[in-house]
């Protein structure tokens, strides 16, 4: 259950990042709502996950998936650079998350 909460927390954080990006381009209320609620829900679900998971694991996975997810979204939907360093970073994060899931 803890892992599901962390996954949700990371997903809504990515939504928040998209909201922020859209808001920085176009200042609409909808974009602002996406941005603020995305981040707020992200913290909330991280909090829920701590009932089941060790803090170090929950925090690292939340941080990792949020970062990797945002980079992937930006590469795929916003046409950002796909330079090797970024792909390598995403791969490292995935290895870390899968590894942590397997040992816990």
């Amino acid at each position: 259950m803890g892992w599901i909460y962390v996954l949700i927390a990371s997903a809504v954080e990515i939504a928040g990042v998209i909201g922020l990006k859209l808001f920085s381009r176009k200042k609409t209320l909808l974009n602002l709502a996406l941005f603020v609620s995305g981040f707020a829900l992200s913290y909330l679900f991280l909090y829920f996950s701590l009932k089941y998971l060790a803090m170090s694991i929950a925090y690292a996975v939340w941080m990792g998936l949020g970062t990797a997810g945002a980079v992937l979204v930006n590469m795929i939907f916003f046409g950002e650079s796909k330079k090797p360093a970024r792909v390598f970073g995403v791969v490292l994060i995935i290895i870390g998350v899968v590894g942590l899931k397997m040992i816990s």
Binding site: S56, I57, A60, V61, M63, G64, T67, A68, V71, S81, K83, A85, R86, F88, G89, V90, V91, L92, I93, I94, I95, G96, V97, G99, L100, I103, S104
Partner: peptide
């Protein structure tokens, strides 16, 4: 140690992405 290593890998990935 397994936990330590995977967390280290994960954060190395985050640092790589942030610095990029």
């Amino acid at each position: 140690w397994a936990k330590g290593i995977f967390i280290t890998l994960l954060i190395a990935g985050v640092i790589t992405l942030k610095l990029a």
